[in-house]
Computed example of a mutant assay.
Amino acid sequence: MKKINTVAVVLKSINYKDSDKIYTLLTKDLGKISAIARGVRKISSRRAGNLDKLNLVKVALSEGLGGMRQIDEVSGLNSFRGLKNNYGLSTKCSYVIELLHKTTEEGGNSEDAFELLVKFLKIASRFQENIDLAVRFFEIHYLELMGYGLNTLTCIKCKKNLDSLEGDFYLDISHGGFICSNCPHTGLKFSPEVVKTLRDLSQNKLSRVNEQVMKELGVVTTALIDEHFNIRLKSRELL
């Protein structure tokens, strides 16, 4: 029976039968998979704690009955405990997990998605006071990864560099960019600072922003996610 060793983040779990659990994992090598851990709900099980939601783990997998993968061994690499012990932080992490889970089919997504999720969790752990910016960072990069990147460099109509233009900019969701105030425009209006911050996030630059800019960043990413994924995210209602 072929065994596979990989690294994964635990996305969710459900109880199965009397003592088992089925876990949804985002793995580095296999994408998103389901795998069963037998006996993990028994009091004597030593694996349960390592398989908590959000945990970064190393797992040994084999093919179980019915073709479902089985978790044979697991060891914890990072529990991100600081994110779990705070309701506000854990809620925002749950939103990121739900977004990724609901937009990824079984076996889908890539090593890039795994690396992005781990990077988000590490940033959120290190800069907990900037968790909202970390969430926006994840959203922007995840949209890019899924083929919905946002042009924050030039006006999508006149092609002029946005940094060289004055005035506000208007989001054109269907064309994935912004229109300057000199061109015919419709759509939501955003300040140059918002567009610059979106560009910085895309280039892996994170810096403090004021409350208004943070609010507008959320409007941009929410509009893009709703347009391209058309899903209901329950955890978003708690943010």
Rank of each mutant, 00 (worst) to 15 (best):
P192M: 07
N86A: 04
K234D: 11
V219L: 13
D20G: 00
Q70A: 13
F229I: 08
N130R: 08
D52Q: 14
Q203M: 15
L51H: 08
F178E: 04
L54W: 09
K160D: 11
E129S: 13
A60F: 12
G177A: 07
L206S: 03
S164F: 11
S174P: 01
T6A: 07
L25W: 09
V209H: 05
R126V: 06
L65K: 15
I33T: 04
V194R: 01
D163K: 15
L61I: 11
K102Y: 13
Q128A: 10
K21V: 01
D20F: 00
D168R: 11
K12E: 05
G177Y: 01
L25G: 09
G64I: 01
Y23G: 01
G82V: 04
Y170P: 00
N161F: 03
I33L: 03
C183F: 10
L201N: 03
N5L: 13
T91W: 05
N5P: 02
L54P: 03
G107V: 10
L224P: 05
L171Y: 05
C93E: 00
L116C: 04
P192Q: 02
G76Y: 00
G39V: 08
D168G: 14
V195D: 02
R208Y: 13
L116A: 00
N109Q: 14
R136H: 10
N182M: 05
E115L: 15
S202M: 12
K102T: 11
L145Y: 04
I179V: 15
S125D: 10
R81C: 11
T103P: 09
N15R: 10
P192N: 03
E129P: 01
A113E: 15
S13N: 09
S174Y: 12
A37T: 10
K92L: 12
H185S: 12
L150V: 07
G176L: 03
S75E: 15
K17W: 03
T24C: 09
K2Y: 12
R38E: 14
S62P: 00
L162I: 12
R208D: 09
S45M: 08
G167Q: 10
S94H: 07
S174F: 13
L26W: 08
K17E: 10
F169W: 04
I43Y: 06
G149E: 03
L25I: 09
K157W: 05
I173M: 12
N78A: 14
E211F: 14
K196Q: 10
L145W: 03
L100P: 00
G39N: 05
R47S: 12
N182W: 07
T154R: 13
G76R: 03
K84M: 11
E129R: 14
L133C: 04
G49Q: 06
K2F: 15
S125Y: 01
K205G: 03
A35T: 07
L56N: 05
